[in-house]
Structures are given as structure tokens and as C-alpha cells.
Design a protein around this nucleic acid. Structure first.
Lengths: 187, 187
DNA sequence: GGACGATATGTCAAGAGTGACATAACAAAA
DNA sequence: TTTTGTTATGTCACTCTTGACATATCGTCC
């Protein structure tokens, strides 16, 4: 089983979805911690069905093309539950901006400052979006968030990770930009 | 040019290195923001040399097997300088622990708490290591860090990113573990 | 009727990255 | 003398992931 397989099972454990629906989720909702394109999702669904982790049924639609709606099986749910509590396999992080920073001493100061200001803005915008979502969740899901058994709590927990990540990344970009500006004034 | 190519150029802009040396760097020093195995590095060096970004000379050693030491060319340095100030191509982040968190509502609470405590520890140990390095740099490189033209400043800046990342990740793990423990006591 | 956009499902070639395999020089220890 | 460990360079098959190509249904707008 691939990690993508578990990502799909995680979505199907909450609701039945088509390959198209899964693609939307992978680009949006869960896209900031796991993403995939439809060209990877469709073959993976076939493999999951082959392994008995999901089943599908064709749903005929009148106002749209027909679709295959996938449902997680008992075996699929068991596999997912087991995977969740296993320590994650350590993956190498690859951060291109930090890599660029490693060579920033070679760069034109003004252009470097601009780069980090732009990235700061990107992360602050993402942060603002997450903070909106957070406010909405805390209002709408008040009761669900009192129990960690709810998918709502799980979604909220991942969002808090996103918020923390974006806030720190933006702050670091600001620190780098400020450092260059202060130490090399108008070079 | 691949990102790995620029990673190699970034290392060679600081000092001449062999493929073996580069492999050590990619596993250690810069490994927390970009990493590669020797099986990827050797072919990439050949491509870089083909493109005129690096040259190599064979250094004969008496106490060890001979080695090829690579040196960055003027063209290589130009390419690196240009790349550094370009906005990074947005890569999808893939975080397996956050993905597991998305399905944590299905998990046994005790085992889930254990998972997040273990991960918290991992990140705190990494953080402690980085903080040691930081103290050493701030002491040893005091003068170099006053100018952003120095490779020392660049190394210091990337280290601060690592510190910020590990600190926040550990804090988030702690928050998740605490949440599960408080809201589902001894279930 | 035709064009366009959203919905819907699929394949394929190519690149990035890894683990395993392969070879060889040299030192030190058994 | 053989073995073990480090240094050193390389290849290859395989997996993961993406972008491009391909096809088809259905509604709406011109």
C-alpha cells in the first residue's frame, strides 16, 4: 500500500466519493499536506479495489455524465486504522527557498529582499485564509471539537498545523528580509 | 537545470568538492532542506560538466583512492546567482504525520497519544541539536554575521529556518497529544 | 447547430528520487 | 593472509509524480 492509497482511504472513511471528487479534495481541502492529480488517483483507485480496500458502484446522473462512487470496505477501514498509529516513515524535506537562502550571500541585496518580501506575503495570505477557516470551524463545530473521536476534530488539528507552519514561515521570511536590509543598507 | 543541480552549485560556490564530499554534505549539513544520494549526485555532476557549469580534475591520493574534485565555472556561478533571486516554483508539501492526523479520529486514543509524544520527542531532539549549532555559530562567527555577503550568514539563516520549523512542529505534536489526553481520559 | 465549460474517466511518456548492485583502492586489524 | 571498514565512483531497475494527450456526457449561451 502506498501513502496515496491511505490518503484516499482517509477521505473515503468520511464519505463516499468519485475519482473526480477525490481529485477536488486533493487539490483543495487536504492539498496543503497531501496532494495528487487525477492521473495518479484513478490508477490508485483501481489498485485499492483490486486489493479489496474499496468497492465502487456506478451512479447514473441525468444532468451530468455518470460516475463511479467509491466506498471503503471493512478491510480498508482496518488497514487505515492500523496505518494511522504507525510512526511515519521519515521523508527528506526539500525546501527550495531555504536552498536559495543557502546561496543568498551571492545575490544582489535589493532583489534578495524583494524575493523574501514576496514569499512573506504569500505565506501571510495563506495564513489569513486558514485563520478564517479556523474561526468558522470554532464557531460551527463547537460541540464536535470537544471530542477527539470526530472527523471535525481531526480536520481542525490538521488546520492548526497549517496555521503554525505558515505563521512561522512568514516570520522567518520577514527576519531574512529585515536582516539583509538592515545590514546592507542601499548597497 | 534541475534543482539538484543548483544545490550542487551552491555547495561548490563555497569550496571545491568531490562527488563523495557532496554526498556527505547532502546527508548532513544541508540535508535538512535538500538531500540526495550518491546515485543521483554522480550523474548530475556529469550533466553539470556537460553544460559547462563545473569542471573536474583528478586528485591522486596516497592514503586513499584517487578522486575527482569539482570546481564551479564562471558560467556556473552566473547561473547560480540568477537562480537564487527567482521565486521558487511552488512544490506540493507532503507531510505524512499531518495526513495521519486527518484520520486520527479513527484511532485508539492511547496509541495515538504515544505516536504524537514520540514525534514531539524527535523534533525536540532535532531542535536541541540545532540550538547547539546556533550557539556555536553565534560565538564563532560573530563578525561574519554582521554582513549578509558572507556564506556564514547564509548558513546561519538556513539554520534559523530549521530551528523555527522544529520548534513549531514539536509544539503542535504536544498540542495534539494533550488534546487527545484531556478530552478522552483513559478511554 | 456549434462552441464552450464543467463534469467525468482514463492512458502514457518522462523526470525525480531511491535502494540495490558493482567495482576498486587503501588501511588496519585479526 | 584474509577480512573488514572507509573512501571513492558508477549503473540500473523500480517507484512516485506530473503534464500532456484522449475521450465522452451534459448544460448553457450565442
Amino acid at each position: 500500500m502506498t501513502t496515496l492509497g491511505y490518503a484516499i482511504l482517509g477521505l473515503l472513511s468520511r464519505e463516499d466519493l468519485s475519482g473526480y471528487d477525490l481529485t477536488q479534495r486533493m487539490a483543495g481541502r487536504v492539498g496543503y499536506f497531501w496532494s495528487a492529480k487525477h492521473s495518479q488517483i484513478y490508477p490508485e483507485l483501481a489498485r485499492l479495489e483490486d486489493g479489496g480496500y474499496v468497492t465502487h458502484s456506478v451512479v447514473e446522473q441525468r444532468e451530468r455524465p455518470d460516475k463511479k462512487v467509491y466506498e471503503i470496505t471493512a478491510e480498508g477501514l482496518d488497514a487505515l486504522k492500523e496505518w494511522v498509529i504507525q510512526p511515519p516513515v521519515p521523508r527528506p524535506t526539500r525546501d527550495e527557498l531555504t536552498l536559495k537562502t543557502y546561496s543568498v550571500w551571492l545575490a544582489d541585496k535589493e532583489q534578495a529582499v524583494q524575493l523574501f518580501r514576496e514569499e512573506e506575503l504569500r505565506h501571510e495570505e495563506q495564513l489569513a485564509h486558514y485563520e478564517e477557516l479556523r474561526a468558522w470551524m470554532e464557531g460551527e463545530w463547537q460541540e464536535d471539537l470537544t471530542s477527539t473521536n470526530s472527523p471535525e476534530f481531526a480536520s481542525y488539528a490538521t488546520l492548526r498545523r497549517g496555521i503554525s507552519y505558515e505563521r512561522e514561515y512568514a516570520a522567518w521570511c520577514r527576519w531574512v528580509a529585515d536582516s539583509i536590509e538592515r545590514r546592507e543598507p542601499s548597497e
